[in-house]
Simulated scan of single mutants.
Amino acid sequence: MAVITHARPSLEVDYRTLSTDDQDRFDQLMERADHAGPHDYQPLMDTLAVLTGINARDVARCSCYTDAYGCGCAAIFDTALPGAVVTATNSPNCNLSQLQCPTCGHDHPRPITD
């Protein structure tokens, strides 16, 4: 009898490994989630989790991907991972803060200042 092990749910994926269509869909869903009302936000996050294969309530893309001072990291990750670093809080009427993945948060943290 063969023993089958189940794959562990992913907590981080590389944006660049998504197909071009899935990258576009991810970007659109994140934009919608950023401006979603309280009843629409979680269904959008659930769709993002399925799209990326991340077992998470909330997902984020590492803020280093567009940051002029960042490393170009392409991580999409569970926002509840230990070591994630907030680099900017959400703007008024927006839901999403900018976060660094745990690797970037460890390697080159740039916490927000008050």
Results as ranks from 00 to 15, higher is better:
Met1His: 09
Met1Gln: 12
Met1Ile: 08
Ala2Gly: 14
Val3Glu: 07
Val3Thr: 11
Thr5His: 07
Thr5Val: 08
Thr5Tyr: 05
Ala7Lys: 12
Ala7Thr: 11
Leu11Lys: 15
Val13Met: 08
Val13Gly: 14
Asp14Val: 04
Arg16Trp: 06
Leu18Gly: 08
Ser19Leu: 02
Asp22Lys: 11
Gln23Gly: 04
Gln23Leu: 01
Leu29Met: 11
Met30Ser: 15
Met30Cys: 11
Ala33Trp: 02
Asp34His: 10
Asp40Met: 10
Tyr41Ser: 03
Met45Glu: 05
Met45Pro: 07
Asp46Arg: 11
Asp46Trp: 08
Thr47Asp: 13
Ala49Val: 07
Ala49Ile: 06
Val50His: 10
Val50Asn: 09
Gly53Thr: 02
Gly53Pro: 07
Ile54Phe: 05
Asn55Trp: 13
Asn55Glu: 14
Arg57Gln: 09
Val59Phe: 01
Arg61Tyr: 04
Ser63Leu: 10
Gly70Ser: 03
Cys73Thr: 01
Ala74Ser: 12
Ala74Ile: 06
Ala75Trp: 04
Phe77Asp: 03
Asp78Ser: 06
Thr79Pro: 08
Thr79Met: 00
Ala80Ile: 06
Leu81Asp: 01
Val86Arg: 04
Val86Asp: 02
Asn95Gln: 04
Asn95Cys: 15
Asn95Glu: 05
Leu96Pro: 11
Leu96Trp: 14
Leu99Ser: 03
Gln100Cys: 02
Cys101Asn: 00
Cys104Glu: 00
Pro109Arg: 00
Arg110Cys: 06
Pro111Ala: 06
Thr113Lys: 11
